[in-house]
Design a protein around this nucleic acid. Structure first.
Lengths: 341, 341
DNA sequence: CGCAATTCTTTACGCGCGTAAATTTTTTGT
DNA sequence: ACAAAAAATTTACGCGCGTAAAGAATTGCG
């Protein structure tokens, strides 16, 4: 690398011997110029490290290379993990992802989207808060910006939806639980933040009917996103009032299950499949932490890779002009057998 | 809000009746214009929602209002939580924070910093990866961009350092453990990613000497950021080779402790203070998850609020011209007594 | 080799805003 | 009420790059 520092595209075009408009074209898409000129530019690029001013670029381009990634709660490792995955895929495709979290607050979600608008993103990958989201504001945003919805669907919003097949999740794990012991009760929040919860409850009811068992749904109180605490408190109350009719509890999601396991511990209830265990607990999501609960949590896991790949691919395809009608893609989960059930 | 849509500051200045340079001044700092004109602008702002083009602003301003927040691993809820905190403080102070994660990879850390440079940030809040960080690249970055280091210090890098007092952490919890039972062994990674680990080990050694006990450090193998798994595997090996000389284990951090708890469970070892418990385990960090382990983890917690407040305040003060010599601030932690020890 | 199709160069303008200088208007203090 | 200070306006230029149009150079192909 030489010492002469290049401060703009004009100077760079001079020393590279290529005209500025062509250099500009190169930065927009390296393959849009002749092979030989591309090589000349890249040789110069190695000698003098120059990068076009990102603000000047974005100001004039009709379409930027910015991509927004919005999740409901970044402090939930599930979302952090999927966000990381999406981020990498965008970078690999030559886009500039920016990560946002609504921190569980629907007003913040709107604010985030407003800020995102200012970045003139080519597209957005959005996991909505769900029930609490301001529906019409989301809709308005999706009208303006190519948006792919993931994780939790809101009608036919955006370009498409990619997520997990919650019916398959619950029916699969219910099936497992029924075949290996007492039929499960279903442990959930009464007013879940996420619409997936409703699908899971329904799928549980279907599964129980198919097996000819009486379903039992325990719907606990609690607002917000502190699911572990909600599960813990709700668990204590459910135990105290003897609401569990069988020795098996299927939780609507892993974080609730983690809280329930804590409640079990605090009440001296042994969880697992072992000889002196009195109860089985299973979750749903394949939460990064579920491996390390005590006992390790039996759960059904999202296919993180497949979901994020499908989501990123769909968005980027749409950005690049491949129009397709709205579509919902729901991927199957994998049962992860561990000690808790 | 009226229907006429304003597309630039020129138009907005026309309808608000204020000249464009004054409007520009207002957006730079609302308090820099006379109260009456400020009110006129804000009245117009309510009628026609106009926001200055962020790219055009940043292109010309010598100093942007961008602030970068960089953490080693966003999927660790500890960092997610502190990042959220920092983010909010920046927004409240009128800055535009952008969140980045190095995803545990020192090369990515450099890449993130390079991308950050392109945003011409007014300042950066950086929690370095630690041992694995490319020291000289960080240094170079800090030379160019006002950077405040937090969580894990690297010499006298940047404007200042803000973090926790690891000596106090370990001495405090060691003290507690010694007074309430057998003196603790110290469970750590042999090659920890984070330099805080060294301080904690040293503090443990000091504490044990002060109490007149023989220290015992168990240093386990493992690279990377999958601390829980490292703790679990390392725990199994340590138990198998009977490396724990007392019934009390102080872990270098909570995530390691969480893995160790899983190992204990898997070996049928009862952890806690109860009558038929054979071992006590404590962690350090006050990890968001530590409340929900089984048993709930006794730990010493970072003062999240104080650390992030101090970090954000220091950076913003420096940005706004309050020069101060390099300083290291280390805040005390709070002991959180739970069932595990 | 010659022609058309590509690709590049030259020239020129515009994006939306920051900012400086000179001038005019408004406010402040007495 | 008046001068001085403060704030706003007018005018003008520049930032770094996108992009369009017209012409020149290069390429591919029969």
């Amino acid at each position: 690398m030489s010492e002469t520092t290049i401060k703009n595209m004009e100077e760079f075009s001079a020393i590279s011997g290529i005209s500025r408009p062509t250099v500009s074209k190169y930065f927009h898409d390296p393959d849009s110029v002749r092979r030989s000129t591309r090589e000349r530019i890249e040789r110069a690029l190695e000698k003098y490290d120059y990068r076009p001013n990102i603000f000047a670029m974005n100001q004039n381009r009709k379409l930027t290379k910015n991509v927004g990634i919005v999740v409901p709660l970044l402090s939930d490792p599930y979302f952090a993990e999927i966000a990381r995955n999406l981020e990498q895929r965008c970078i690999d495709a030559g886009y500039r992802p920016t990560l946002f979290s609504a921190h569980g607050d629907p007003n913040l979600e709107i604010e985030v989207l407003d800020n995102l608008r200012a970045l003139k993103p080519a597209g957005v990958l959005l996991a909505p808060l769900g029930r609490a989201s301001h529906r019409d504001a989301l809709e308005k945003f999706c009208d303006d910006v190519p948006t792919l919805i993931f994780d939790s669907s809101v009608d036919q919003l955006g370009l498409a939806f990619v997520g997990s097949d919650n019916f398959q999740f619950t029916s699969h794990i219910s099936d497992y639980l029924c075949r290996t012991g007492e039929p499960p009760c279903f442990f959930e929040m009464k007013t879940p933040a996420n619409p997936n919860a409703h699908r899971r409850r329904q799928s549980y009811l279907n599964a129980m009917e198919a097996f000819g068992h009486d379903p039992q749904v325990i719907s606990i109180e609690g607002e917000g996103w502190a699911f572990e605490e909600i599960g813990r408190i709700g668990g204590h109350e459910a135990f105290a009032s003897k609401q569990f009719s069988t020795n098996t509890i299927l939780c609507s999601n892993d974080r609730l299950a983690i809280g329930l396991l804590t409640a079990c511990y605090e009440r001296g209830i042994k969880v697992g499949r072992g000889p002196n265990c009195t109860i089985r607990v299973a979750g749903q999501d394949g939460h990064p932490h579920s491996r390390y609960t005590c006992p390790p949590l039996t759960t059904i896991s999202h296919d993180y890779d497949a979901v994020s790949k499908h989501a990123a691919d769909s968005l980027l395809a749409a950005i690049e002009g491949h129009v397709e009608p709205w579509k919902s893609t729901r991927l199957e989960g994998k049962l992860i057998l561990r000690d808790s059930a």
